[in-house]
């Protein structure tokens, strides 16, 4: 323990000195927080200023749609659908993996796996995309075919199944795998920070391991889990290259997860259309970026509200 006494104590007029140090330190943390404010404001101003002309764009720059909303809606739909699938898959998996690492696995294995999973956050998004398009997609083709044959009555699996596996479900899976390391790493760290005494108390009362986790670990880490999932969501919503590479993207609204005609996402659409966009077309794309920004804002806001409500009365 690095007790403060081991370092040279402050010179005699401790009171005055202390206050200066505190003021400086506090000030610098506030400046840092202020920088975030400025950066975010900068991004927001940039997006808004560049995005506004899109509202007046004509059909030529909106792929034939008459209004910007009509243009952006299918993309928004695709973005939300892909992110939803990704989180649906990634969250339970990530919590499971994090629990396995923090509470189930032998320490040596846990360390190793934790390390490997951290590394997967470093795999370039391009590589996820290439892997998704060249390995995962083709491997999933039989599954998609099976789904569309046997569960085709559900709109989700209406098909016809894609011949190359470049479907919404593949994109969701790739996003889930991309979000997994982030969610896992943070959850793992939080789970392992649960006060040991709480855990032992639960066990001593005769709780099974799962009951201990449910009663001691989860309440303690709820806010952290939500933060982790939000970070994962951020990645899933904003992921550009991987989706662009994996998805057979169209600007449509479709619930079909296994067909090759899949709704595109905002970020992927920006990446695909930006190089050839000129004039107002660029503004249109940036405006879709603004939409994504606002959506993330809304999703985060509601998630925070929910957590705040459920945490009321829960003493840390």
């Amino acid at each position: 323990m690095s007790a403060p006494t081991t370092s040279p104590p402050a010179p005699p007029p401790a009171r005055a000195k202390r206050r200066i140090g505190d003021v400086l330190f506090r000030g610098s943390t506030q400046v840092a927080a202020g920088i975030i404010l400025v950066a975010l404001a900068g991004v927001a101003i940039f997006l808004t200023a560049e995005g506004i002309p899109a509202l007046r764009a004509d059909a030529a720059h909106l792929a034939g749609e008459s209004t910007f909303l009509a243009y952006a809606w299918p993309l928004l739909f695709g973005t939300l659908l892909a992110a939803f699938i990704a989180l649906l898959i990634a969250t339970p998996l990530a919590i499971g993996v994090a629990l396995a690492i923090s509470h189930y696995a032998p320490r040596r294995l846990a360390n190793l796996v934790g390390y490997v999973i951290d590394l997967l956050a470093a795999v370039p998004s391009v590589v996820y995309g290439l892997w998704g398009a060249n390995v995962l997609g083709p491997a999933m083709v039989p599954v998609y075919r099976w789904l569309s044959e046997h569960l085709g009555f559900l709109p989700l699996f209406a098909g016809p199944a894609s011949g190359g596996g470049r479907t919404m479900l593949t994109a969701g899976l790739v996003l889930a795998i991309m979000a997994l390391p982030i969610i896992t790493a943070i959850c793992r760290e939080i789970f392992s920070q649960t006060p040991r005494l709480h855990e032992e108390a639960a066990l001593a009362l005769g709780a099974t391991r799962w009951e201990m986790i449910r009663m001691a670990v989860f309440p303690y880490s709820r806010s952290g889990i939500v933060s982790a999932v939000m970070l994962g969501l951020g990645r899933a919503l904003g992921e550009t290259m991987a989706v662009a590479l994996v998805l057979s993207a169209f600007r449509i609204v479709s619930w079909d997860l296994v067909s090759g005609t899949a709704p595109s996402t905002i970020a992927a659409n920006i990446a695909l259309s930006f190089p050839e966009a000129t004039g107002v077309g660029v503004n249109v794309l940036i405006a879709t970026g603004l939409v994504l920004f606002v959506i993330t804002f809304a999703v985060n806001f509601s998630a925070r509200m929910i957590v705040a409500r459920s945490e009321k009365g829960l003493v840390r």
Partner: peptide
């Protein structure tokens, strides 16, 4: 047109994307 106008078939990014989509798929 520069951007594919209809919702038919499958889409792949860039030349190499099309090539690998054709290679990985069947009857493409």
């Amino acid at each position: 047109v520069g951007e594919w106008p209809i919702t038919h078939g499958e889409a792949a990014p860039q030349t190499s994307g099309v090539v690998s989509a054709v290679t990985n798929g069947q009857n493409t």
